[in-house]
Design a protein around this nucleic acid. Structure first.
Length: 316
DNA sequence: AGATGTATCTAAATTACCTCA
DNA sequence: CGTGAGGTAATTTAGATACAT
């Protein structure tokens, strides 16, 4: 005699994954949303100008997969009401040093780089990643600054003041920019709205943050990479849990199978049933036995794709 | 219409710098 | 003070796509 165990609809072997996926995403504090990446632009409160643009770039971006991930742990500051409402100090026309009040001193990101000019697009095209211009970041230490850094900063200020003349004493070393909290927050807000940028958006952001378009581009690239990495970690963890669950399930089923076989040997007459009369109830996860009449009803049900289990004594 | 070259964009991998414990 | 780890800006490389010729 053979035992046939059914675990539900074989056409959807992992349908349960959907449920747990949602749960895990929620539990882990990640937010996944589906929608048009340009939705915010339709509201008219976006900071970008490419709203109604129909150029090829726009089309290209908007045709991207609409999956949008928000990895909340990356948000460094409380979310502002709207990205367009962010009033960034470096955007004022009569700019004094916006970092003065914060004890930040010189912000080399705000150096009058040519790439920040109105024709930034053209300049960006000219400025190669390896060009001397792109290396001329200097160091603007971000939020994590100590006393020593402030002292260094004074020297840095003096040094950068003469940078125009002795531009990069050692041009081979690339200086590393550190985005300010505000810049990062603004970029995060933008990223939440759309994880990819069209050229207009890139330029608009660059203008607003006084960064080069290339820097905006790099930031978004790295941000996407981080998002993907995080998502991969989450997925990996989730699959791990699934694997564990399935292993336990398998173990349990093996045990139950053994029990049934033992039962069969001890009660040979009672268990003289066709193989199709043994099935697994997906709700109570117990093997169910049934009378032959129920068994025929069950097989008919199974053919129609319904869940083939019984509400007999084993269905707790 | 198909082939080819060019420009642009992106993901992935890697490097290099910076900060902190 | 030196060091390793971690975060991240920046670079390199390869593939895909659009467009012009």
């Amino acid at each position: 005699m053979e035992l046939a165990l059914s675990l539900g609809d074989p056409s959807k072997p992992f349908s349960f994954l959907d449920k747990t996926a949602k749960l895990s995403s929620k539990d882990l504090g990640f937010c996944m949303g589906l929608g048009n990446g340009f939705k915010s632009q339709e509201n008219g409160d976006n900071a970008f100008e490419g709203k109604n643009s129909t150029d090829g770039d726009e089309k290209r971006v908007s045709s991207d997969p609409p999956l949008q991930l928000d990895l909340l742990p990356f948000s460094p500051v409380p979310r502002p009401q709207s990205s367009s409402q962010l009033h960034l100090p470096w955007l004022t026309d009569n700019q004094t040093d916006p970092w003065e009040g914060l004890g930040r001193g010189l912000d080399v990101n705000r150096l009058p780089l040519v790439a920040v000019a109105d024709d930034a697009e053209e300049k960006a095209a000219v400025s190669s990643p390896n060009s001397a211009v792109s290396m001329d970041f200097g160091i603007r230490n971000g939020s994590r600054r100590g006393k020593k850094e402030v002292e260094v900063e004074a020297v840095e200020t003096e040094r950068t003041s003469t940078r125009a003349s002795d531009d990069d004493d050692n041009g081979s070393t690339r200086k590393k920019l550190r985005l300010s909290k505000e810049q990062s927050a603004f970029l995060e807000e933008s990223f939440k709205e759309h994880s990819t940028l069209n050229p207009k958006q890139k330029l608009a952001l660059a203008k607003q943050l006084n960064l080069r378009p290339r820097q905006i581009e790099v930031w978004f690239q790295n941000r996407r990479a981080r998002t993907k990495l995080k998502q991969t970690e989450v997925d990996c963890e989730y699959l791990k849990r699934c694997c564990e669950t399935l292993a336990e399930e398998n173990k349990r089923l093996q045990k139950e199978l053994q029990e049934l076989r033992a039962l069969k040997t001890s009660q040979p007459f009672y268990m003289q049933l066709p193989a199709t009369t043994l099935t697994m109830c997906p709700s109570c996860e117990r093997v169910a036995t049934a009378s032959t009449t129920n068994a025929s009803a069950f097989t008919a049900d199974a053919k129609t794709g319904g869940y083939p289990f019984f509400s007999s004594t084993s269905n707790t």
